[in-house]
Amino acid sequence: MARMSIVFGVVLIALGLVSYFGTGSQHPTALIPTWFGVALGVFGFLAMSPDESRRKLFMHINVTIGLLGLIGAAWRALSAYGHARSQGVDPDKIALAAQGAMAGLLLVYVLMCVKSFINARRQREL
């Protein structure tokens, strides 16, 4: 799962950079997925350890980062969409797509981590 964390980190970094440059480099908040990706990548790298307790610690940190990112991105996408519609304007499509993509990626990541944690516990119980 540590390698998968690095993969998701790289994808989030790319998403943040694409959205930042897609907005004409005017909105630094478009880089938020990049920072989540950097965190997932760093802790994913640290989780590649033969020591089981160290691996568990860093993977639990990663899934917490993923869950916080998922909640934040989903909340921001929904509230920005609702606010724009209540004002009678179209929402920023690039921002909405980036927030939705980040939420979707992190949802998949968190579900994969939970499944991995369940499988690891079952393996230990055998």
Rank of each mutant, 00 (worst) to 15 (best):
V110L: 01
V108F: 02
R55Y: 02
K93P: 04
S53Q: 14
L68T: 05
I71V: 15
T29Y: 12
R55F: 01
M112G: 13
C113H: 15
G72E: 10
M59R: 11
T34C: 07
A39S: 11
R121C: 07
E52T: 13
A80M: 14
A39P: 01
T29F: 11
V63S: 01
M59G: 03
S79C: 06
Y109S: 04
K56I: 03
T34M: 14
L31F: 01
M48N: 12
S49C: 08
R54S: 10
S86A: 15
A103S: 12
G44E: 01
A77Q: 15
G82H: 03
S79K: 11
A98H: 03
K56Y: 04
G69N: 00
Q87K: 12
Q26N: 13
L68G: 09
A101Y: 04
F45Y: 09
M112P: 05
V89C: 09
W75P: 08
G41V: 12
D90N: 12
A120Y: 04
V38S: 06
Q99Y: 13
W35Q: 08
S53R: 15
L78I: 11
I65A: 10
L96S: 06
V89P: 09
L70T: 00
A97V: 08
Q99A: 10
L96W: 05
R85P: 07
G82V: 05
I65L: 07
A101T: 13
L70R: 01
V110S: 00
I71N: 08
I32A: 09
G41R: 04
H83I: 14
A98P: 03
R54M: 09
A39K: 01
A73D: 11
S86M: 15
V110P: 00
S86N: 14
G69M: 01
D92G: 02
F58Y: 08
R122H: 09
